[in-house]
Amino acid sequence: MTPTTPATPIRIAALLAAAALLSSCTRAEGDLESATDQAPPSPSPSAEAKEPYTIAVGGDVHFEGVLRDRLEKDPATAMGPIADVLSEADLALVNLETAVTGGGTPAPGKEFRFRAPDTAFDALEGAGVDVASLANNHGMDYGREGLADTLDAADRAGFPLVGAGRDAEAAYAPHLAEAGGDTVAFLGAADVMDEHLIGPWTAGEDRPGLASAKYGAADRLVSAVEDAAERADAVIVNLHWGLEGDHCPLPHAPDLAERLIGAGADAVVGGHAHVLSPGGYLGGGYVHYGLGNFVFYSHAGPTAESGVLTLTLEDGEVTGDEWTPARLEGGVPIPATGEEAERAAADWESLRETCSTGLSAEPEA
């Protein structure tokens, strides 16, 4: 047998280097093919373009008197033709100024108490309303039992309420909705309550009730707006405020509006006075001091003047507004047309100067 010649260290090193180079090239080609076959990464949600969207806001709603007949006949059409205006918006908000209960204990010392059956939520949904505030001076007209009934009925209907809850955390919590690529937070609070009911009606840590903006409770509302602004792109606050029969806001209202806008609210809207009040832009947000009666049995003279405020928002900012004037007939708002609509809109616009609110007709640059 002929003996083999042993490989030298130099030859072994060369062979190993060549094998390593070949393996490296093969892996690189394979990696390139795998990378080429992969789909390009999809853009993150935050990179998606935002689109303009609209929020329609109506005033005070209950279903007493002539409205109870409408509700019993057909809840889906109980709010009348104004439903077309509400439904055209991406989101719609009203103030539900009634307890939804058949029981409870009547609140003491009140001249007027409102309540409605569960079908009230069918009426709101049928009219295109997406969320309602219960924070007002009639939300607990039938006490804590009536409030519990109201919250239970809303839960069964799957209808969002703000401004009330089984404790303070729930009462001041926002309802979150999506529109135009934005997350929109809705909150409600009452700046009007009978003095002897402020304590019993205001939600506490372990007490059901309403979100309040009265006295020191305003600080809690400001904090709630700050928290909502961290979770949402836009914040809308429905505030029950004003003096009955007076078109102009109470002296403290502009300061409260500025605090809420400074805390992150993009719009502060509401009512209570039963008449229309001015609206406009203030400090980078939109403020409306009184939307008047909306679906309400009281309708004569100024208390019959109503309408829908439609705000346009984009990327978390209010960029435009539109006022659709209406007049109550049979308890429901009938949109005005033609010269009547032009005259009613001009009358509403003039309230900004009449009340000297510092509101402007156009958003700040």
Rank of each mutant, 00 (worst) to 15 (best):
A173E: 13
D246G: 03
A164Q: 09
R156V: 10
A211L: 08
A153Y: 00
I236F: 02
V192F: 06
A229T: 01
H247Y: 03
E205C: 10
G158A: 08
A179F: 04
A234F: 01
T202R: 03
A157Q: 09
A232I: 02
T202S: 04
G199T: 11
W201N: 05
A173N: 03
G143C: 09
V235E: 01
D182A: 10
A154K: 07
D152M: 13
D227Y: 03
G242C: 05
G143L: 07
A213I: 10
L151I: 07
A173M: 07
A171Q: 04
D141M: 12
H196Q: 15
A171F: 01
D155G: 14
G245I: 10
A218C: 11
L151W: 02
V222T: 12
A173T: 12
G188P: 02
A168I: 13
S212L: 09
G143F: 02
G181R: 10
R207A: 11
I236Q: 01
D182T: 08
L151V: 06
D182P: 07
D152K: 07
L239W: 01
A229H: 00
L161H: 03
A203T: 01
R231T: 05
D149N: 04
R144Y: 06
Y172D: 06
T150E: 06
A179D: 04
D141F: 01
G143H: 02
L187S: 00
E169N: 13
L147G: 02
G242Y: 02
P160F: 03
G158V: 12
R144G: 05
V237S: 09
P174A: 05
I198K: 10
S212C: 10
H247I: 14
G204H: 04
D206Y: 00
D219N: 07
G216V: 13
G146Y: 03
V192P: 01
D219Y: 01
G242M: 08
R231V: 10
E244Q: 15
S212H: 06
S223Q: 15
D182I: 11
L147F: 00
G143K: 05
E195I: 12
A224W: 05
A232H: 00
G158C: 07
A211V: 06
H247W: 05
Y142D: 13
G165D: 07
E244Y: 04
A224M: 15
S223C: 10
A164G: 06
L151R: 01
V222I: 15
N238M: 13
V237M: 11
E169S: 12
T150Y: 00
H196I: 15
A157S: 13
D219A: 11
H175R: 15
G245M: 09
D152Q: 12
G180S: 04
N238P: 04
A232K: 04
V237A: 09
A173G: 14
D149A: 11
D246S: 06
P208W: 00
A153L: 09
R144S: 12
A154W: 00
I198R: 07
D155Q: 14
A173Y: 05
D219E: 11
T183S: 03
A171D: 02
D219L: 09
A189K: 04
G216R: 12
E178T: 11
